[in-house]
Amino acid sequence: MTALTAVASYLPAGRVPIEELAGRLGLSDRQVRVFRRFHGLSEVCRDHDGTLFDLLAAAVGELDELRGREHLVKYVLYARGMPVAVPYPANPLHELCRKLGLAHAVAFTVTHHACATGLLAVDIAGRLLASDGVPGALALVIAGEKTFTRDAELVPDTSIFGEGAAACLVSADGASDRLLSYVTRLRGDFDGRLVEDPGLAVRFAKEYPGSLAEVILAAVQRAGLALDEISLIVPHNVNAVSWRRLCRMIGYPVDRVLLDNVAVTGHCFAADAFLNYRLAADRGLLNPGDRYLMVAAGLGATFSAMVFEH
C-alpha cells in the first residue's frame, strides 16, 4: 500500500501583500478587498531573486529523511500545475537530480491534472514502486512553481499564486502515512481559460463545490470510512470562502480544515496539500491512527481527494 513516508516544505522568506500585486494583475481596489475579506487572502510567498531550481532545491534540502537514502530513490517525480516552466533546454529537475546524487533515478514531470497533480504524483510513485517490487525502494515527489506569467499569478476572482515548494518521500509499503484511497475526476468540459471565457467561469464557479464534494465523499467511502471519522482536511489554498461553502454542503466542520496557510502563502500550485501536511504535522494535529483527507482541484478541470492514515 502506497505510503507517504516523509514530507518537507519550503516557504521563501519574501511575502508580498496582495495590494502590492494589484497594479500588475489589473485588479481593482474592490477586487483586492474581496480577496482579503471573503477569500481570506492576505499575502503571498515570493522569492524574487530565486530560480525554479533554487525553489525546488530548498524544499528537498528540508527533507532530512532523504539523507543517506539517495541510493534507494528509484523515481523522482516533479508534480507541476503549469505545463511549461522553463525554456528549452533548461531542465531544473535533471539538474536537481545531478546535484542531489539522484542521477541514477528515473526523473520525469507529471502535469495535466493542473494543481491536483501533486496527489496524482503520489499515486503514480506508489504504483511504480509496487510494480517493481524492490524492497525499501523510494520515490521523491517534488512540487512548487514560479509565478512567472500572469496566468501563473492569478486565477481571476478566485486566487493568487505563491511560490512555496514541497518534497515528499513515497514508498510502496511503508507503515505511515498509508494511502487508504484516491479518487480523481477529470472534467474536460471545464477546459479553457477562465479569463477569456466568462461563460466557462460562471459554469465552473457553479459546479465547483459539488464536484469537489463528490470526490471527497467517494474517497471517504472507498476508504471504508464515514466523513465524521476524518479528523482533518489538508486542503488546497485556493481560498477560504470556497472551503466554507463546501463544508456546509457536506456537513463537515470548517475548523477541521487547515486553512491557515491561505493568508500566508497564497495558492502554491500542486504543492498546497504537502505544505499544509507539514503545517499540520508541526502543530501536532496528526496523531497515530488519525485518518485525514488531502484534497486538491486543478483548472481544466481535475478534482482529487486522498484519504491517508497517519
Binding site: 474592490r30 477586487q31 478587498r33 474581496v34 476572482d157 464557479a205
Partner: peptide
Amino acid sequence: LSSASTLELLLELE
C-alpha cells in the same frame, strides 16, 4: 451579475 461581482456588491453593502 456574476458570483464574483455579487461578492463585490456584498462588500460594498458591508
